[in-house]
Design a protein around this nucleic acid. Structure first.
Length: 209
DNA sequence: TAGGCCATCTGGTCCT
DNA sequence: AGGACCAGATGGCCTA
């Protein structure tokens, strides 16, 4: 099954000063074919290794305390003092930038998680609404549109069952199922546009007109 | 190849 | 202050 494109792309602009670059691991490929799958592309990927790239948290590179190259400059010398202050400031700026960078990465991660949840919800919705071409995954916009229509159709049914329906037409589970069937059939034959028409007629029907 | 769809990043704004 | 939410930008993959 191939799903739509998505290959984890490297950050468009890896947020950072070259210097702070959270060492983009040379693209931890999301495992060749493994990429997400129906369900939620999202969730699967979440687990994927690539994610760690940005999640790679502060620890990378020794973290703040790291002071890597740091060797204490040093001691003494008039010139040395000025030098020390400058490097102090630089280090502080560096630290601030680093912190900003870390916050950015964290918030990217949260945003990703949020979108993943949203996608899971979309997937759940997809599974909840009947649609014709089962082999083709509904796009988001299709999912929303279809869901809206489906709700409308169900509403019509419920209205009918609640007595708005003309006497003698008491809607049984059977006729409800039939209505649903009609809904699908209509979808198949007329597409979205026809559905509106169908619903309209259903509505006027339930009004007893 | 163009257009559709999507994932991700990013900065701004709102909310708690 | 920090997280959630949002919308714009960007770029990849897929299909007609």
């Amino acid at each position: 099954m191939k799903s739509k494109g998505k290959a984890v792309k490297p950050a468009r602009r890896a947020w950072s000063d070259p210097d702070l670059e959270p060492e983009l691991e040379p693209d931890t490929e999301p495992e060749p074919g493994s990429s997400e799958q129906e369900g939620s592309e999202a969730s699967v990927r979440i687990a994927g290794s690539w994610r760690l790239r940005s999640g790679d948290r502060p620890e990378h590179r020794g973290g703040v305390g790291g002071e890597a190259g740091g060797g204490r400059e040093g001691g003494g010398g008039g010139n040395g003092v000025r030098k020390t202050m400058a490097s102090h400031r630089r280090r502080r700026q560096h630290g601030a930038a680093k912190e900003r960078n870390v916050r950015r990465l964290e918030s990217n991660e949260r945003e990703r998680q949020r979108m993943h949840k949203l996608n899971n919800a979309f997937q759940a919705l997809r599974e909840a609404i009947p649609h014709v071409k089962m082999d083709k995954k509904l796009s988001k916009i299709e999912t929303l549109t279809l869901a809206k229509n489906y709700i409308k159709a169900l509403t019509t049914i419920v209205l009918g069952m609640s007595g708005t329906m003309p006497a003698g037409e008491a809607v049984s589970a059977e006729s409800a199922a039939r209505l649903l069937q009609c809904y699908q059939q209509h979808l198949e034959e007329e597409g979205e546009e026809g559905l509106t028409e169908y619903l309209t007629s259903m509505h006027s029907f339930s009004q007893g007109s």
